[in-house]
Computed example of a mutant assay.
Amino acid sequence: MAVKNNSKDNKDPLYRKVTHTQYTGIKKIGDKGPQSWLQKVIVPLDKYFYKGNMGGQTVTDEFVESPAQANIAPLIFGGVALLFVLLSLYILFTNDEIDGSGNEFIYYTLSISILILLFIIYYYFTMPKKEIILNRMDSTITFPGFMWKKNITMPFDKIKFSYTSGGPNFIGAYMLVIVRPDKAGSTLGFPFPGIDCYQDLAYLTWYMDKNRPLPPAEDLDAYREKDFERRKKEKFKKPLYRSQIPTPEATPEQQAERERIGKW
């Protein structure tokens, strides 16, 4: 499917060419089938919904660039592995009372920790740049591929969103994830300011619907007038995605103008 680009003739530094438009192959890990795919619809955002900054490096009416968790994960796991290496060495050199079986366990832990640490160091310095970019004007999202795989850019309406099932007592459940279009069906955590996957995707859908006013967020306030004028010039086209709540303009005057011109 050809995707029209509106991003300054492809010259915007945050523009990324579409790499995938569909899912192919057998999915076994994160893709649990249609029953797990979340609908792109704007649902009510309750009183716990965060309305502050979006936390991105770049936040405008056209793009949101956020730090990819994949860039931070190696540092976290590497730190844990290094901690185990140091603890194992400390125990070996300071405790003379460990018997033979105890020493074997410590050596085993040390060996595994060193291997993991070396692997993480190698991965950190060889992995491709991991990016998360929301392109509102072209309706695409760029997100990291698995491990050494390159970043993926897909049309928003083609992306499968799902959720985590969590552990005991549903700890970690109902967190928003993207199903990658790879053969394994691997997933990527994709949290937003909501309290669960439904509100996260609702907020994301709101932002990605370029025919609606910008969603609530303090760092989007500076762009509301510009965004309104763009949509007015386009005669307030009908929204791309359904909403269960009103999505009004920033002022009553703008709302009246939208209703008069766009009839919605």
Rank of each mutant, 00 (worst) to 15 (best):
G166A: 03
P155G: 13
V18E: 06
E104S: 07
G194A: 02
M127Y: 01
V59Y: 06
F156C: 06
M127N: 03
T205I: 02
D61Q: 07
F236M: 05
L220S: 08
K27T: 12
I120M: 07
P155L: 10
P13V: 01
F161Y: 04
Y223M: 07
R180M: 03
M54R: 14
G78T: 06
I42V: 14
Y203G: 13
Q22Y: 14
R258H: 04
K237H: 14
T142M: 03
Q199A: 11
T126C: 05
P246A: 03
G166W: 00
E253K: 05
T94F: 00
Y23S: 10
G56E: 10
I159W: 02
Y107F: 15
I116K: 02
N95W: 03
P193S: 10
R230E: 14
I76V: 15
V59C: 09
K47M: 13
I91V: 15
P181I: 05
H20F: 11
L83E: 07
S162G: 02
E225C: 05
E62H: 15
I29Q: 08
M147V: 07
D61F: 09
K263Y: 04
P34T: 04
G172W: 10
L115D: 00
K11Q: 09
A256E: 07
M208P: 06
Y122K: 10
Y23Q: 11
L86S: 13
P144E: 01
V64L: 12
I133M: 01
Y48P: 00
K210Q: 11
K51F: 05
L87N: 12
F105S: 09
D96M: 04
A222H: 04
V177D: 12
K11N: 09
Q39Y: 06
A217D: 09
T21H: 11
Q57C: 13
P215I: 09
I245A: 05
A81G: 10
S139D: 05
E249L: 02
V41G: 08
A70C: 00
E249T: 00
V18P: 04
D221E: 14
E131M: 01
F190H: 05
I98P: 01
K183Y: 13
K17Q: 10
K129E: 10
K47E: 15
R180A: 11
S88P: 08
T142Y: 00
K40G: 13
R231K: 10
L38A: 07
Q22A: 15
T58E: 11
Y48T: 15
M54I: 12
S101C: 09
I141E: 02
L82I: 14
P13G: 03
E253R: 03
G25C: 05
Q39C: 12
L82H: 06
I42E: 11
V179R: 04
A70N: 12
L214V: 07
I76A: 14
G185E: 01
D221K: 07
P216C: 06
L92G: 06
Q254H: 01
F228P: 02
P155V: 07
I245Y: 05
T205H: 13
K158W: 05
S111N: 11
I98Y: 06
K238D: 12
T21A: 03
M154P: 04
Y174D: 15
K183C: 07
G189H: 08
D12Q: 01
S66V: 13
I42Y: 09
V3E: 07
F146K: 10
D99G: 11
Q69S: 14
F190R: 01
S88K: 07
